[in-house]
């Protein structure tokens, strides 16, 4: 299977504003310290790590919301690493993002229909109303929801709108950054089952960022474990869970509280 993403020795540093002197530049903190991996076309890849491990920064670099300071990101053969905003714009339709907090990533003044239609319009699609209707249908929301505002929806429904907005553009790749961490277990299950089905039906490639290994086990074929900006493990998910190699992976696994009072949790 061809690789959709090829990432080589990816480095990314950000300015540390807490240590900025009054005059002069802030010192740089290296967040990603040389990551190399590929994402095969059609795969669902889990990216896991503790807070501060760089998993969201990695996601943002993949969809070029952040510009790498070193290394290379190739997407379907195109080198994205230092492309200008103008050169990225036509490509953006092909890699979409679903955000963690749907309430802050959906415009509160727009109705759901407008929210889904806006990117379609920007990318010059035709037949927009039909596309909006189909996207709502694909995420299992009734057509009447097009007229609702985000605050009228439950957390799970809002997250479906986020998914609808992303898939309406018929992208090749979707980045989902902690998209279920704010949801109850039941809505979490619904949203994940939906995403699993859409990835299969639409032939999408998915990068799924989460701190929850249970969710990744269910959804992803490959798992990348990040620790302090480096990859400590990158393997097929079943192998990683059965025989974790890195100490940090073992620590992560043993910290998960299973719903079972007999689990040893020393």
């Amino acid at each position: 299977m061809a690789d959709l993403y090829e990432v080589q020795n990816l480095r990314l540093s950000l300015a540390d504003m807490t240590a900025k002197p009054l005059l002069g530049a802030a010192p740089r903190i290296e967040i990603l310290k040389g990551l190399t991996f590929t994402i095969p076309k059609g795969a669902a890849v889990g990216i896991v790590g503790g807070s501060g491990s760089g998993k969201s920064t990695l996601g943002r670099a993949l969809v070029r919301l952040l510009e790498p300071s070193g290394g290379a990101i190739r997407f379907g053969g195109t080198d994205l690493t230092h492309l200008s905003d103008a050169a990225l714009r036509p490509l953006r339709r092909r890699f979409q993002m679903i955000f963690q907090d749907p309430l802050s990533s959906l415009n509160p003044r727009h109705r759901v229909g407008t929210i889904i239609a806006e990117p379609l319009r920007l990318h010059g699609f035709d037949g927009i109303p039909a596309r909006v209707a189909r996207a709502l249908d694909q995420v299992g929301l009734p057509q009447s929801f097009a007229a609702r505002y985000p605050h009228e929806l439950s957390g799970g429904q809002r997250q479906r709108v986020g998914i609808a907005r992303a898939i309406a553009l018929e992208p090749d790749f979707i980045l989902a950054d902690e998209i279920v961490s704010g949801l109850d277990v039941s809505s979490q299950a619904q949203v994940l089952n939906l995403l699993e089905r859409l990835v299969k039906d639409l032939g999408l490639t998915l990068a799924f960022i989460s701190h929850d290994l249970s969710v990744i086990r269910r959804l992803c074929q490959h798992t990348i474990v990040l620790y302090q900006g480096t990859i400590v493990e990158n393997r097929p998910t079943p192998d990683l869970f059965c025989e974790p190699r890195a100490d940090y992976t073992r620590e992560l696994l043993s910290a998960i509280p299973l719903p079972d009072p007999n689990q040893p949790w020393g």
Partner: peptide
């Protein structure tokens, strides 16, 4: 019981994540 069935378990990829 349904709430318990919705709770994911990393030890068993087939269990959990069933909506109520």
């Amino acid at each position: 019981a349904a709430l318990l069935a919705a709770t994911p378990k990393y030890t068993d990829p087939t269990a959990g994540l069933n909506p109520v």
